[in-house]
């Protein structure tokens, strides 16, 4: 795949993950494992957005 295609795919994945993270943040989750999983997802999401911005620049 080309860099452009990879960036497009990255954006699609980030949109999907951010939807789930946002949905999770709007719910009262007390399960520690789930909270941890959301935290990992959020971290990976920010990493992805950082990379996306870096490559776009």
């Amino acid at each position: 795949t080309t860099t452009k295609e990879d960036l497009q795919r990255l954006l699609q994945l980030l949109l999907r993950i951010s939807t789930v993270v946002e949905e999770a943040e709007g719910r009262r989750i007390e399960n520690r494992a789930m909270v941890r999983q959301i935290s990992i997802m959020r971290e990976q999401m920010f990493r992805g957005y950082y990379l996306l911005d870096a490559f776009r620049c």
Binding site: T1, T3, D6, L7, R9, L10, L13, L14, R16, I17, V20, E23, A24, G26, R27, R28, I29, M34, Q37, M41, Q44, R47, G48, L51, F55
Partner: peptide, 30 residues
């Protein structure tokens, strides 16, 4: 670049594992 492909792969795997998580998530109240 290699870094970009690696990031895509990591997120692809994360999204693939997300299905069950989303179903479970929906059972929680807002």
């Amino acid at each position: 670049s290699k870094e970009l492909k690696q990031a895509v792969l990591v997120l692809e795997n994360m999204v693939a594992d997300m299905e069950d998580f989303v179903i479970f998530l929906m059972s929680y109240p807002r």
